[in-house]
Amino acid sequence: MPKRSAETVRLKTEKVHLGYGDFPIIEGLDLQIPQGKIGAIVGPNGCGKSTLLKALARLLPVQSGSILLDGQAISSLPTRSVAKIVGILPQSPSTPESISVEELVARGRHPHHGMFGGWDHTDDTAVEEALRLTGLSDLATRAVDTLSGGQRQRAWIALSLAQHTDILLLDEPTTYLDMTYQLEVLDLLAELNISRGTTILMVLHDLNLASRYADWILALKDGGAAAVGSPSQVITEDFVRSVFRLDSRVTRDPDTGTPVVTPLAQHSLAALRAKADGAA
């Protein structure tokens, strides 16, 4: 279990109910997000992973209960002050046509400015650092819409890095990326956590990647937390069966020692062929 002392938690939910209209999605969730750790939210489609993340970033109002940042309801804090502490990278954000990488990244400095901008040296440094950390310095002047999927995702992460927040929330940052790019993005987030101590919470679909890259995992099911804890505590065969309704074998990765979920053999072309041949 992650540490849960009061000093190491800035963002938490208390009996929070979330939903759209009369349609409840999360009911009475208590969650404390440990500072300086990487967390992953997992769960079946439609379980409210994105909804919870949006609410944590005050993009969605709570129906009841509260989301607290440093002990105060996040919705009552000035949104610009929140933006200096909590960053959010939504799922498939909209990229303005023909914007260059560095101009997109520069938008991350918005919460640090007054009405008229007032760009200074700190802003330049923050943008450059974000470009360097994401390996985009050489692509800085390229239009974002001409980049590959992985590069585009890195450009958006660079925007969040330039924002310089203590907490970073990401909604499925690896979706639509091939395996190499997925690992690249997760490596980048891990490095960010190590170098800046940034607290990271992301929605992930892949349990194996969540196990490799997260300190702690929250599994959502039926409007509440099905499990919270370290990957080896949470990811078990029983857990996969009850939360995902999938029979699987959970083994240890020989190199990282983290859990690896492998669906049982009945979910395979060979098994299904053999079954069909047997029936015929």
Binding site: L59, T79, L89, P90, R107, H110, P111
Partner: peptide, 21 residues
């Protein structure tokens, strides 16, 4: 006075909110 806000709004509702608009 709202020029930069207007500019950030082009990134979509969620991103703009996340950036403090």
């Amino acid at each position: 006075t709202m020029a930069h806000t207007l500019d950030v709004l082009r990134l979509g509702t969620y991103t703009a909110t996340g950036l403090g608009v």
